[in-house]
Design a protein around this nucleic acid. Structure first.
Lengths: 243, 243
DNA sequence: AGTTACCGTTACTTCCGGTAACAGTAATCC
DNA sequence: GGATTACTGTTACCGGAAGTAACGGTAACT
């Protein structure tokens, strides 16, 4: 990044632009290979094995990723993308609240069910292993939580309730579903449907209680719309809400 | 382990027994040192640094711990002990349900607030790093969740409700508090009291809703006892509940 | 034709977890 | 008292995996 543009004028040379898309594609390709290697060798894959899976050798990998955790981060993002893609309809569509929650939870559980290796790698191992400066860990979880926080906050404000709790609520819900999902994935001692039902109820009861304590009653089976298109909120540090 | 007892008959020699307590103490001492080293050097401490902090060299460490993750596991257990110690009164005492939840949550948050380095190490880094066979990761979280599951299950059965949800509920609650606590610890944009309040409400509302949907109404401010002494439930795999 | 920006390799260094080998001390057993 | 046991501790090494250096090849744009 920020490589000094030496002698060439920036717009003219197509050679720089040309490769950007390519590099992007290559990274994705390596992410694919990493996931394959992951499912094959387990979470302790080495860079050599990943490179081999991609059909190249290590240095090639290191031309596209700064280091191991950079690669792992990309893998994490891939997972998050998949997850959000699956959950988005439930979150943005109109529909009864209960049903939307239910669908979102089910989307989450079915996604992790379909990609257990990836899930374990991202969530359990949390691609640690790094003299890393800051929150390498779960900026993806953050992304999801922030998205949810925005959604909750909008609703709370629409009901003229204290919206200060939106963020902790979001993190609470995310952690809750993740933790229960983790448990479920490990020993599948219960059908996915059952777990979805339980979790949906917890969330729904909590929301209902919150609203009721604020003097508002809503029906779980009445549609409830208020959707400006769902936006993703990548940066949690930016002070957006002042008053 | 299982070292063959060569010539000496087992009972007679006091020399074997004598050292057991000592070894135990030594391990604890090293765990202390590890935590100190952790707060000093951050989560990326090396074994050499830990050993140095303990005033010895590496091989000494390896005489008491099989490997790095064995040591880390011990550190995790220490954390769990501290946590459970703090939370136990809230969980076992009689008292109004709302207050008990409140105290338990507050105990959790104040513990992680007091030991952020330890917390980060145990929870975020999840002492991974190991060609480990199974769930090295969070058998401590499991311990907590199972304890809670037992508690919840007892109550559910006492109310003659479906107790099948006790376990997912427990994991959900644990994950919820952990996730929100994690968020809070990072950017302390809210007082501990506020967060405690929010979390307590979520949990309480969820429980209340669950009971109400089962046709039971309870008062958050009426004491609710039913405590056989709180037991810890270390092993989740043992098939205890059949019918 | 020359430049740029990739493609890819082999062989290396570095760091760190873990071990081998060696030596000293205090208590228990006979 | 002397042997045995079970620790105390050290220095010097091994091995594996992350990451790098240095080299060479190819295709497209100017």
């Amino acid at each position: 990044m920020g490589r000094a543009v030496k002698g060439s004028r920036e717009g003219g040379d197509a050679r720089r632009e040309r490769w950007r898309a390519h590099r992007e594609a290559r990274r994705e390709e390596f992410v694919d290979a990493t996931i394959r290697a992951l499912t094959k060798h387990g979470p302790e894959v080495g860079m050599d094995e990943i490179a081999a899976e991609a059909g190249v050798t290590k240095p090639v990998l290191y031309r596209h990723f700064a280091d191991k955790s950079d690669l792992y981060l990309a893998v994490g993002h891939r997972g998050t993308e998949m997850l959000l893609e699956r959950m988005r309809p439930a979150l943005v569509d109109d529909g009864t609240p209960y049903e939307r929650i239910h669908r979102a939870v089910d989307a989450y559980l079915s996604t992790i069910e379909e990609h257990p290796a990836l899930y374990h790698f991202v969530v359990r191992r949390s691609f640690a292993d790094k003299p890393v400066e800051q929150d390498v860990v779960s900026q993806d979880k953050q992304l999801i939580a922030n998205t949810l926080a925005r959604l909750l906050g909008d609703y709370l404000r629409a009901f003229e309730l204290d919206s200060g709790g939106a963020e902790p609520w979001a993190y609470a819900v995310v952690g809750m579903v993740q933790s229960a999902g983790d448990w479920w994935l490990e020993r599948q001692s219960m059908t996915r449907q059952s777990l979805t039902e339980y979790l949906t109820k917890i969330i729904w009861f909590a929301i209902e209680g919150l609203l009721r304590s604020g003097g508002i009653a809503i029906d779980p089976d009445l549609p409830l719309s208020l959707g400006p298109a769902l936006r993703l909120v990548p940066d949690p540090e930016s002070p957006a809400s002042a008053g």
